[in-house]
Design a protein around this nucleic acid. Sequence first.
DNA 1: CCTTTTTTACTTACTAGTAAGTAAGTGTGC
DNA 2: GCACACTTACTTACTAGTAAGTAAAAAAGG
Lengths: 192, 192
Amino acid sequence: MKEMNKTNQQILHYTGNFLQCRGYNGFSYSDISRKLGIKNAAIHHYYPQKEDLVATFLEVSRHKFAANIAQVAESGGSAREQLQYYFDYALKEFDEGKSICPPGSVMLDFEELPEKVKKQHLLLLDEILTWLSRVLKTGLEQGELNFSDPVDVRADAIFETLLGARQLSSIKGRKTLVRSISLIKSDLGWRD
Amino acid sequence: MKEMNKTNQQILHYTGNFLQCRGYNGFSYSDISRKLGIKNAAIHHYYPQKEDLVATFLEVSRHKFAANIAQVAESGGSAREQLQYYFDYALKEFDEGKSICPPGSVMLDFEELPEKVKKQHLLLLDEILTWLSRVLKTGLEQGELNFSDPVDVRADAIFETLLGARQLSSIKGRKTLVRSISLIKSDLGWRD
DNA sequence: CCTTTTTTACTTACTAGTAAGTAAGTGTGC
DNA sequence: GCACACTTACTTACTAGTAAGTAAAAAAGG
């Protein structure tokens, strides 16, 4: 991977900002270059094609997710604490104006996406859903959670609800997202 | 409103097909005109600007929704039957390749949308959420459903989960959507 | 330490393609 | 003859992507 100097980092930063608001076809190299005060072509220096840019963004997102999750888990976080971290992360991103999660940002365009973007998207999606299932399983075993459906179905449902909730909340406001997260917990048998 | 001849109806039909897959900026007048075997400019004859086209599509969607719902309600449909109609509709649209519902299709682009599109979107969204709340309330009162949260929060959650579930299912397949609908029901205390 | 070479990080200037939108013209049926 | 349903032909604006060039920093060599 290319060296991560400041410009490169900023490119990826704004890629996230735009991608997680407007999707793959919703932003251009010019949107990013204007933000950085550089020229369009400068981004091609780092990422020859748009697919390179977005694939790298998704890959970096996956590595960050894995690292963050690993840290929470290693520091002895319970299932509830790990889930709470995930919910807080969604809220934090929402507060930054990002109304879609990284995997969600390219989900609708999936079919017509270049192969390398598809690949990174599927890796990221799988990383998240697999982790969610694992945490839910632990939560059940430890008695921290209580529900009667298969963990992987419940994992999908949490992901879906957050995905939809962030989108609806971008119109109805933060309170809607907060309430939806409460409802997810409540449906997990998570009663304080 | 312009007369609804065949071409006009087909334009709106394909607008739905594209919009509910790829969103506001994900399709062009050419996409539609190619499907109909007419020229780009012919669509401008019916809808001078894209905002006219999409606003009309949303308005028609709302009228159709209201009519369908009214029909089910008038024919003595219970709360469960009315909800089931809604779920079936989501499944039917999913089977047609539409991975977003009509209000969801412009949700992400909302902020930068022309005013008349915003307006129609909000009207449609409100129509659906208000109806959902009303049905949930009835379902509780009649003992057909059982849950402990405010009906409007639960209505948002159902909408959000379907919104997200259709998107995730466009990648993971129909079974994912079917299972998510089952989970929604189960969380409503809907046990057969 | 100083010079030469190479690399990095861009800019300028361009191409080809596609988007929305417009104006003027054509054919057809009442 | 005139309104309707288009087509032809166009403009303006923006997109991804490329080719060639440049200034400065880093690396290499003596």
